[in-house]
Amino acid sequence: MLVVQNITKKYGDFLALDSINLEFTNGLYGLLAPNGAGKTTLIKMLTTLIFPTKGEILYNGKNILEMDESYRTLLGYLPQQFGYYKNYSPKQYLLYLAALKGMSKKETLPIIEDLLQKVALSEVANKKMRKFSGGMIQRVGIAQSLLNNPEILILDEPTAGLDPKERARFRQLLSELARDRLVIVSTHIVSDIESIANKVIMIKNQQLLYNESVESICATLNDAVYETSIKYENLESFREQYTILSEKQDKDHMIIRFIHKGTPEPDWTTLNPQLEDVFLYEYRDNEQGEVR
């Protein structure tokens, strides 16, 4: 079990996170918040890249900073941007990283072949990465994070540059991996985690907002999400009164999905809330400074 106890992080006078308490067991957790809300700060503390100003992080009751290398050997980590050698092939790159981890070539080769197949790179295993697209590079990054068969897998914005087909494949891979390990995915893209996360963690105003299932979080907007048709001349006035979730043109009208907590009008249709509705509602006035 990975436990975050009363974690606070400051950069000078700037408060990035304030009194965060979390518990992680095996399964998939989505860390969902807008860019600049402190997701990467929390991820970097979980991976020991930066240290808390206050509080501690424990793995099976031991402080991860005191565990030092024995903790990091349990980790697989994909940062937002990772370093690689453009003139290396994926196979060469993964062999190089495995050697740095003290893994022998003999034991590593079948692991690498399996990983490249999982991320759909088998056909280009020996091609130089300088010719790869951003999505292909990201898949190499996903493979390197799995190289040591980690007990804890932490991925920071892992689907950047992936097309819809690659995203779907990646979600399937994450679901499989989370059966027997802890997986934490930090993202601002709701669709990355909505269908696969056991729990979703949301941070707002430097504090923990939600640490619940998708169903429980969506239930906070039960009987508050509606759809209606608005004439163009009434659109601006409607926008000023309600939190708009989406707008779709329909001939001379606009179909509006919106939030209203109160008595509905007779011509409004009640909709089932989705995770993206909660995200847009909770962060509608988000003006947080950027946190790195």
Score class of each variant (00 low, 15 high):
Glu282Asn: 02
Gln249Trp: 15
Lys261Ile: 13
Gln249Pro: 01
Val190Tyr: 05
Leu75Ser: 05
Arg179Asp: 05
Pro266Lys: 06
Leu208Phe: 07
Met129Pro: 02
Leu275Ser: 00
Gly76Ile: 08
Gln172Thr: 15
Cys218Glu: 07
Ile7Leu: 03
Gly83Ile: 09
Asp156Thr: 15
Asn234Ser: 12
Gln144Leu: 04
Phe51Glu: 05
Ile259Phe: 09
Phe24Asp: 00
Tyr226Thr: 11
Leu209Arg: 05
Glu215Gly: 09
Glu282Arg: 02
Leu75Trp: 01
Glu282Met: 02
Val214Lys: 13
Pro266Asn: 03
Val278Glu: 00
Asn87Glu: 04
Tyr71Ala: 00
Tyr210Cys: 12
Asp267Pro: 12
Gln138Thr: 12
Glu287Ala: 08
Ile259Leu: 05
Thr269Cys: 01
Asn222His: 05
Asn211Cys: 06
Glu227Val: 15
Phe51Ala: 04
Ile57Tyr: 03
Ile230Val: 09
Pro158Cys: 05
Leu162Glu: 01
Ile184His: 09
Glu240Ala: 15
Asn211Asp: 13
Val185His: 07
Pro52His: 02
Asp277Pro: 06
Leu147Ala: 07
Gly12Gln: 06
Lys165Leu: 11
Ser246Tyr: 08
Arg171Met: 08
Lys101Met: 04
Gly27Phe: 11
Ile50Lys: 10
Arg284Pro: 06
Thr73Lys: 03
Gln138Lys: 14
Ala98Trp: 14
Thr228Pro: 08
Val3Gln: 06
Gly27Asn: 09
Asn35Tyr: 11
Lys204Phe: 14
Gly102Val: 06
Asp223Arg: 14
Leu42Tyr: 10
Arg72Thr: 06
Leu15Thr: 12
Gly102Trp: 07
Asn26Gly: 11
Gln172Met: 10
Leu174Lys: 07
Ser104Ala: 04
Thr25Trp: 08
Lys118Gln: 03
Met103Cys: 02
Ala33Tyr: 14
Arg72Asp: 01
Ser191Pro: 15
Ala99Gln: 08
Val185Ser: 02
Asn234Met: 09
Pro52Phe: 06
Ala33Gly: 11
Glu113Gln: 12
Ile201Ser: 04
Leu146Phe: 07
Asp180Val: 15
Lys131Ile: 15
Asp250Leu: 15
Tyr96Phe: 07
Asn211Thr: 11
Leu147Asp: 03
Lys106Gly: 03
Asn60Lys: 15
Met45Gln: 05
Thr187Arg: 11
Phe279Ala: 00
Ser175His: 10
Thr269Met: 08
Met1Leu: 04
Pro273Val: 11
Leu58Ser: 03
Thr73Trp: 02
Ser191Arg: 10
Pro150Arg: 04
Leu94Tyr: 08
His188Asn: 03
Glu194Tyr: 08
Ile259Asp: 01
Ala125Trp: 06
Ile137Asp: 02
Glu236Asp: 10
Thr48Asp: 02
Glu113Trp: 13
Glu240Cys: 13
Lys231Leu: 13
Gln92His: 10
Ile20Leu: 01
Thr243Tyr: 12
Asn222Ala: 04
Tyr11Ile: 11
Gly289Ser: 11
Gly30Thr: 13
Asn148Asp: 05
Met45Ile: 09
Thr159Ser: 12
Ile255Asn: 01
Ile256Gly: 03
Leu58Met: 02
Asp180Gln: 07
Thr228Ile: 14
Glu233Trp: 12
Met45Trp: 11
Thr48Ala: 01
Glu194Trp: 12
Asn126Tyr: 10
Ile154Arg: 05
Gly12Trp: 10
Lys251Gly: 10
Glu123Arg: 11
Ala16Gly: 04
Arg139Asn: 03
Ile57Ser: 00
